[in-house]
Write a protein that binds this DNA or RNA. Sequence first.
DNA 1: CGCCTGACTTGCGTTTTGCGTAGTCAGGGT
DNA 2: ACCCTGACTACGCAAAACGCAAGTCAGGCG
Lengths: 163, 163
Amino acid sequence: MTLQMTGRLAAEDRTELGDLCPIERASELVARRSTVLLLREASYGTARFDDFVRRTGLTESVTAAQLRTLVTEGLMVKQPYREPAQRQRFEYVLTEAGHDFVPILLALASWGDRHRPRPHRLRMVHAGCGAAVEVEVRCANGHVVGDDDVTVALRSRQRAATD
Amino acid sequence: MTLQMTGRLAAEDRTELGDLCPIERASELVARRSTVLLLREASYGTARFDDFVRRTGLTESVTAAQLRTLVTEGLMVKQPYREPAQRQRFEYVLTEAGHDFVPILLALASWGDRHRPRPHRLRMVHAGCGAAVEVEVRCANGHVVGDDDVTVALRSRQRAATD
DNA sequence: CGCCTGACTTGCGTTTTGCGTAGTCAGGGT
DNA sequence: ACCCTGACTACGCAAAACGCAAGTCAGGCG
């Protein structure tokens, strides 16, 4: 699959487009091993600090720091909670933005499953039927987007402001 | 969307599962800003060294180093080519593994588009109809996978070897 | 034959990321 | 009143990632 740039975009230096590119803005988060691991664990339902540390293998300091940035970035919220007959604790839960990150993780999983030869023994399956989960590229009109069907377009300034 | 761990996976420390997890193996590549940028440019059709440098804003040394690892990781190949009346040059082109990376980029783009408030003016659209491109999670049987429909399963050792 | 250009490499400093270890701190249980 | 535990913070250090600047090298042009 390739992406076609239209019009003047094709020739332009992308440097100045920097924060106009949604990939670049999103990958600021992914560009750290720790955040991917933490988001993975959070998607698995992990909520407590200690569990994040234990299950990711990250150190406490890294975990604390990255959880904090994930909270300030709006992917998680830190909430007080209380188990019966226990004192009050804090838990980290995914926000909507955090939940929306899961397709990225699944896309990574799908790629890793296909292209990394070493046998991973974890697979993501559909709870309903047990078949492997895949990410499919479609457009808002429901068409399946094929290999050369993606165009990168420059949004007009007006629409960008209101969108 | 959340991922449900089954059986003993739920309790297990994931540390030892390390290279069993396809997300972790795939994110070794993504965990660098430079690789994401280079793969993005390559998906846009960039092939020449200088263009990678100019369009990503990375330094030459970083570009050279990361292109090399992308080649050894099997996401790109370095091929000689010759423009008419020019001397022989080298170009970097995506392999199948590299092309298969595009859905990850689109998933990132889709997330960035939705959850980063600053107006990005770049959008990915379906060349056929102009509608925005989205990534959809489906299972191999074609069912749309909903919010709580993903299960993480442990593959048996036999199947893992042949799969 | 010397110069230019594209494609790198080399060297150096800075920042970020991460590990390891130790210390803190608040709330509950005993 | 004291201890324990979960949830951190605070060093100090190593490695990786990135930037800046300069140097190299091969092939073609004039």
